[in-house]
């Protein structure tokens, strides 16, 4: 089990990176009225065959050679279903994969979202070849970070340059605070 849902997001996004995605879209949406937390990770990577999709939720399936188990997807699925939530994977070879999980926001067994800012900051600054579109929505208000837009402005200055990295961290922190008013999900 992951102690924070933001770690599940980091983990699943690493799969997208290994699938050679050039764009990864991550959405985190919370809505108190609807009592829902919805997370989706969509990539344009190599995708999976039908056979792979059928097996990916099985802990004893992995494409790795370094170990015999693959717990990333089973962990995420378990975290969602344990809150009366839902879990879906859609994938098409050479088109990409979408992983969607919903959680009952108020469910006692729902893991906290945790430090989502660290997850996104890490993904963006350690995978500068990959583009990310991150959207954070809370009760209808949202902000996003689009690395394609950032790169256009930066005109060759890398996202992992210390000053830019610090700016990205602040951008994520300040805007999240503005959207959720410091609520702890």
């Amino acid at each position: 089990m992951m102690p924070e849902l933001s770690l599940n997001i980091l983990d699943v996004a690493q799969n997208s990176i290994r699938a050679n995605a050039t764009l990864i879209e991550i959405s985190v949406l919370s809505d108190a009225k609807k009592d829902i937390l919805a997370i989706s990770i969509k990539d344009n990577g190599c995708g999976m065959t039908k056979e792979q999709i059928d097996r990916v939720e099985d802990p004893f399936f992995t494409t790795r050679t370094t170990r015999k188990v693959g717990l990333g997807i089973p962990f995420f699925k378990q975290a969602a279903l344990g809150t009366n939530g839902t879990f879906h994977i859609e994938s098409t070879v050479n088109v990409g994969t979408v992983v969607t999980a919903t959680f009952t926001l108020s469910h006692i067994d729902r893991m906290p979202l945790g430090d989502i800012t660290s997850t996104i900051h890490m993904l963006v600054t350690f995978n500068t070849q990959t583009d990310f579109l991150y959207t954070y929505t809370n009760n209808g208000e949202s902000f996003s970070l689009d690395t394609r837009e950032f790169k256009k402005i930066l005109d060759g200055v890398a996202l992992n340059t210390p000053e830019v990295s610090a700016y990205i961290k602040e951008y994520l922190t300040v805007n999240k605070q503005e959207i959720d008013h410091g609520a702890f999900y």
Partner: peptide
């Protein structure tokens, strides 16, 4: 109140000489 992208442009201008 939101963090603006204007600051990112300023960083770019400062950093571009040092790439």
């Amino acid at each position: 109140y939101m963090k603006s992208l204007e600051e990112l442009r300023e960083i770019r201008e400062r950093m571009q000489g040092q790439v």
